Amino acid sequence: MFGRLGPTEIILILVVIILLFGAKKLPEMARSLGKSARILKSEAKAMKSEGNDTASAPADPPQPAPKTIQAAPGDVTSSRPVTEPNDQQTQR
């Protein structure tokens, strides 16, 4: 009964979709669908490469960047880097 769709059925389905959503919404929907597919693809690639990186990565955790203290919010002229003791430094 629902085995194969012929060209007539496909055209009928497309006409119903155009009538339901309107011609103005279809390009916007196609753009958002394409954007979602690109995001999904990039996330899948990132997860795959992350899995490969963790297998070959050393066991040492990354070192945090030094923090900066500013005299006033937005004042960059009087800022200076500050190193805070972490667990590794205090256990010596």
Rank of each mutant, 00 (worst) to 15 (best):
Q91F: 09
T54A: 15
P58Q: 09
L14I: 11
K35A: 04
E50L: 13
I39F: 09
V82P: 10
F2L: 05
P61W: 11
Q91I: 14
V76A: 04
S49K: 15
A72P: 00
N86Q: 05
P27S: 05
V76F: 15
L26S: 00
I39R: 11
P27H: 06
L20G: 01
R4N: 04
Q70A: 07
E9L: 06
T8Q: 06
I10W: 01
E84K: 13
I11R: 12
S56F: 11
Q89R: 02
A44N: 07
P27Q: 05
G74Y: 10
K41A: 13
I69F: 12
T68G: 00
E9Q: 13
G34P: 02
P58C: 11
Q89I: 04
A65R: 12
T8G: 11
N86K: 00
P85T: 09
K41T: 08
K48L: 05
T54W: 01
A65G: 00
S49P: 01
A59W: 06
P64G: 09
P73N: 07
P81E: 08
A46K: 09
S78V: 05
D75W: 04
D53V: 01
P27Y: 10
A44T: 02
S56D: 09
K35G: 00
S56M: 05
V15R: 13
A30V: 11
P85N: 10
D53W: 01
G51H: 15
A55T: 14
F21D: 10
K25W: 01
A59Y: 04
A23I: 14
V82R: 12
I18Y: 02
E28L: 14
V15A: 12
L26G: 01
R38H: 06
L5K: 11
Q91Y: 09
D87V: 06
L40F: 07
P7T: 12
R80W: 12
E9T: 09
A57F: 05
A30F: 15
A55D: 10
P73A: 08
P61I: 11
L26Y: 08
L26Q: 02
T54H: 04
P85L: 11
A57R: 15
G3V: 00
A23C: 01
M47Q: 06
T83L: 11
A44F: 09
P66Q: 02
L5D: 13
A30P: 02
F21C: 12
K41L: 13
A23F: 11
